[in-house]
Design a protein around this nucleic acid. Structure first.
Lengths: 112, 112
DNA sequence: CAGTATCCCGCCAGATACTG
DNA sequence: CAGTATCTGGCGGGATACTG
């Protein structure tokens, strides 16, 4: 296998996943499906409106999520994972599994 | 499958991989084995001594890489992937594959 | 409800110079 | 050769207030 370090395609995926709230937003949309803005805000404790909007806009810009605006009052906007965004799932799964094992690793290290 | 978004173990893996030069350093060590400091510096064009040192220290701190110092003049220090660090390989591979496909995705989008 | 608009701070990362 | 030390700017991210 040759991953051609010099081209570092890894950075492309990393760039999309990096952002303090992006992983959790993606996990929620992947596992629980379409969500409204306010539902996401409740689901991600601690996030501000500004940050939620920003992260969603960036993910939308990369075609990872889809934004659906309903022309009504009061406003209703729904977000969901795009078909393309779903292709990130294996990466998220791999990272989640590694993270779980990592927790144990750190625990063992601390017990020495 | 339940990845428990609220705990977001994904951030653990992400935190270790994030850093402007970490992915490329890890790919090089994974694919080409042990390297000296100066070899790495040559292998990663554009990186400064300060940044190379910093990224290596951070990876070492997480037990992802191993630092081997030879007590001689002139100094010789070798870096290699630790057994634990090798467990990150599936993630790097998944991200590289996604990144490669992503390039095509962007190209198609641009052609519309 | 679903956003903008401002103000602000900390830290990542770059440039450059120096050293055992 | 393999590092520190110092100065610096930019940007990610937080707090708060306002709006169609």
């Amino acid at each position: 296998m040759d991953m051609q370090p010099e081209l570092c395609k890894v950075d492309d995926a990393l760039g999309i996943l990096v952002g303090k709230w992006k992983p959790i937003i993606l996990l929620i949309l992947l596992q629980e499906g379409t969500k409204r803005f306010s539902d996401l805000k409740r689901r991600v404790p601690g996030i501000t409106q500004k940050m939620l909007t920003k992260q969603l806009r960036e993910l939308e810009e990369e075609d990872i999520i889809t934004r659906n605006v309903y022309a009504q009052v009061p406003p209703k906007v729904e977000y969901s994972i795009s078909e393309y965004g779903r292709s990130l799932e294996p990466i998220l799964v791999a990272m989640h599994e590694w993270g779980t094992a990592h927790t144990l690793h750190k625990t063992k290290k601390g017990q020495l």
